[in-house]
């Protein structure tokens, strides 16, 4: 069994065996990140491929300050964000009229949490994937990857208030989808 250090050194020597080992060890986790940010598997594949190529190209810059997995996580997250940003035609600019508005919650937060807990991982993933790209991007960055609004604003080159308003809309859309899904489930029963 090879350690991360062994794999890292092997990859730096450009040995194909270790490169494949690195791929096998981290591919599932990294592909999960790509799936969250992408709206379908094809896009996730693209991001995944691009991410791994970046990893191989930049392995020599990895200092070992953090775990290899964490370092790769950051790369895949950044790659996913950049990829989605490239595909976005509209910038994250919010006019004054579109400033933060209170969410007209169709279901309460507790209800949302309750129903969300009843979803399978696949159902939750599909719900997120069905969101429009900018909402999917922001909810992934904030809710799943736990980036602050300041970080999001810096990465996406938007204002913090824009980040908040986009998140607010994303949550509302997610709530609506959740309610719809749950209504169907209840109706089905």
């Amino acid at each position: 069994m090879y350690s991360d250090e062994d794999i890292l050194e092997g990859c730096k020597r450009k040995e194909r065996f270790f490169q494949e080992l690195l791929y096998k060890r981290f591919s599932n986790k990294m592909y999960g990140i790509c799936l969250r940010y992408a709206h379908d598997q094809a896009v996730a594949h693209d991001i995944f491929q691009e991410g791994f190529i970046k990893v191989y190209q930049n392995l020599h810059t990895f200092k070992g300050d953090s775990a290899l997995g964490s370092w790769m996580y950051r790369i895949f997250m950044t790659t996913s964000i950049n990829y989605i940003q490239r595909t976005l035609k509209n910038k994250f600019e919010v006019s004054i009229n579109e400033s933060v508005q209170p969410i007209d919650d169709s279901i309460s937060e507790e209800e949302a949490e309750h129903w969300m807990n009843h979803l399978t991982q696949e159902e939750a993933l599909i719900m997120v994937q069905e969101l429009p790209e900018k909402y999917r991007l922001i909810i992934n960055m904030y809710a799943v990857d736990q980036m602050s609004h300041t970080e999001i604003a810096r990465v996406l080159n938007i204002t913090e208030s824009s980040s908040r308003s986009q998140l607010s809309r994303a949550r509302k859309m997610l709530n609506d989808k959740l309610k719809l899904k749950m209504d169907k489930k209840i109706g089905g029963q």
Binding site: G32, R36, E109, E110, A112, E113, M116, N117, L119, Q121, A124, L125, V128, I139, N140, Y142, A143, V144, Q146, R171, L174, N175, L178
Partner: peptide
């Protein structure tokens, strides 16, 4: 928001 927490736990 609870939904964020749930989402993080799920995904």
């Amino acid at each position: 928001h609870h939904i964020d927490k749930s989402l993080r736990l799920k995904l």
